[in-house]
């Protein structure tokens, strides 16, 4: 499972402030803590408020890479902001994300190829959020086809079925889960799948419990990646245990400890 740590996001007050005041210590602590907790990749998002997102992402990438070599997922709606980050990234990075719109696909797939990066494709387009599993599969197929046409390796592609909050779109949960299973049938090799998990509990009173339960269900449906808060220990322990029960890792009494030694 690709665990992408979500905490370096300008949307969070402490990170937004750190970006503004160029306070490296906050960012570097988040990078180290998330890595130690089991994140195999760190999401980097300058946040919507950033006045100069290009400068901000450059500073974030450099600041993080000073203390960890965990790969980075560059998270922005603007392609030129992502590219600034890609230029500085040392390891194999990830682009988060393209939608199924032609203009996005035609910009971001070539960019991912150029920088040998992985790519997240959101199963949505300008018309908005998909209403069911069929529409999700249709949009996913469009992304997969575009990657195939442009010679982008499908093992580097993650499709995100777009998770919605349970308190406003309760019927979408099962549609997302079924989509995870259906995406596997789109191609051979099949694209990988990723979810932005925390969205499922947006605005609810039991965020951690809802996140954890949904993640474990999604793992059962074959999910291969998730953008999560890795400092949520119960979430991580639940995830590790779910993968263990699916026979992805070999059991031993200290299996939770063993996972972190990878």
């Amino acid at each position: 499972m690709l665990v992408i740590g979500e905490l370096i996001n300008g949307m969070y007050q402490n990170v937004g402030k750190a970006i503004k005041t160029k306070d490296k210590s906050i960012i570097q602590k988040l990078a180290k803590d998330q890595t130690k907790a089991g994140a195999s990749m760190l999401d980097v998002n300058t946040g919507p408020a950033s006045a100069q997102p290009k400068d901000a992402i450059k500073w974030l990438v450099e600041t993080i890479q000073e203390v960890v070599d965990t790969p980075l997922a560059l998270d922005s709606t603007k392609a030129d902001v992502i590219e600034e980050g890609l230029k500085l990234v040392k390891g194999k990075a990830m682009i988060n994300s393209t939608s199924a719109d032609d203009d996005k696909l035609n910009t971001l797939i070539p960019m991912a190829k150029k920088y040998n990066a992985q790519l997240i494709g959101l199963a949505m387009d300008k018309k908005g959020i998909p209403r069911d599993r069929n529409q999700r599969s249709e949009l996913a197929l469009k992304i997969v086809s575009a990657c195939m046409e442009q010679g982008f390796p499908l093992e580097d592609l993650y499709i995100d079925p777009v998770v919605l909050p349970v308190n406003v779109a309760q019927a979408q949960g099962v549609e997302v889960l079924e989509s995870i299973r259906e995406f596997k049938l789109l191609s051979d090799p099949s694209p990988k799948t990723v979810v932005g998990l925390s969205n499922v509990s947006q605005g609810t009173k039991n965020r951690s419990l809802i996140n954890r339960t949904f993640l474990i269900m999604a793992v059962g449906y074959g999910l291969t990646g998730a953008i999560v808060d890795p400092l949520d220990k119960e979430l991580m322990d639940g995830l590790i245990t779910a993968e263990l029960l699916l026979n992805k890792n070999i059991y031993c009494d200290s299996y939770l400890d063993a996972y972190k030694k990878k």
Binding site: I250, Y251, C252, D253, S254, D257, A258, K261
Partner: peptide, 10 residues
């Protein structure tokens, strides 16, 4: 195999 992994961790 489970004990093999465990003793290595210990």
């Amino acid at each position: 195999i489970n004990i093999a992994k465990q003793v290595n961790i210990l």
